[in-house]
Amino acid sequence: MEKFKIVKSSERITSINRTIRLSPESFDRLSSLSQQSGVSFNRLVNQCIAYALQNLEED
C-alpha cells in the first residue's frame, strides 16, 4: 500500500457542511500536521478520508 502524503494545493474544494466529532488525540495530531505542512485543517482531513476510502479493504 502506498504511504499517505500530504499535498499542498491552492485549488478550492467543493464541499458540503457536516459536523463531525473527533477524539482529542486525532484533533491534536491533525492540527499539528496541518500547521507543520501549511495545509489547512479541512484540506488535510479531506485528504485523509480520500486516502482511507481508496485503500479500504472490502469483503
Rank of each mutant, 00 (worst) to 15 (best):
M1V: 11
E2I: 12
K3I: 11
K3Y: 08
F4E: 03
F4R: 02
K5S: 07
K5G: 02
I6T: 06
V7F: 01
V7S: 05
V7C: 05
S9T: 08
S9H: 10
S9G: 07
S10F: 09
S10D: 13
E11M: 08
R12L: 14
I13F: 11
I13E: 13
T14F: 06
N17G: 08
R18Y: 13
R18I: 08
R18S: 07
R18M: 08
R18F: 12
R18D: 07
R18H: 10
R18K: 14
R18P: 05
T19A: 14
T19E: 14
T19V: 15
T19W: 09
T19P: 09
R21I: 13
L22H: 05
L22T: 00
L22P: 00
L22R: 00
L22Y: 01
S23W: 03
S23G: 11
S23E: 10
S23P: 03
S23K: 07
S23L: 15
P24Q: 08
E25T: 04
E25H: 10
S26C: 09
S26D: 14
S26W: 12
S26Y: 12
S26A: 15
F27Q: 15
F27D: 15
F27T: 07
F27N: 12
D28V: 06
R29V: 15
L30R: 05
S31K: 14
S31L: 13
S32T: 14
S32G: 05
S32Q: 13
S32V: 09
L33F: 11
L33A: 07
L33S: 09
L33N: 10
L33P: 01
L33Y: 05
S34V: 01
S34H: 04
Q35T: 08
Q36G: 01
S37D: 06
S37M: 05
S37V: 07
S37L: 01
G38K: 06
G38V: 02
V39W: 00
V39D: 02
V39F: 02
S40M: 01
F41M: 13
F41C: 04
N42T: 13
N42V: 07
R43S: 11
R43V: 04
R43I: 02
R43C: 08
L44S: 03
V45Y: 03
N46W: 02
Q47C: 02
Q47L: 01
C48D: 03
C48I: 15
I49N: 00
A50Y: 04
A50N: 03
A50V: 03
Y51R: 00
Y51C: 00
A52V: 11
A52C: 04
L53V: 09
Q54D: 12
Q54F: 06
Q54S: 07
Q54Y: 11
Q54N: 15
L56E: 14
E57N: 11
E57V: 06
E57K: 14
E57D: 13
E57H: 15
E58A: 12
E58R: 09
E58W: 02
D59H: 05
D59C: 09
D59M: 11
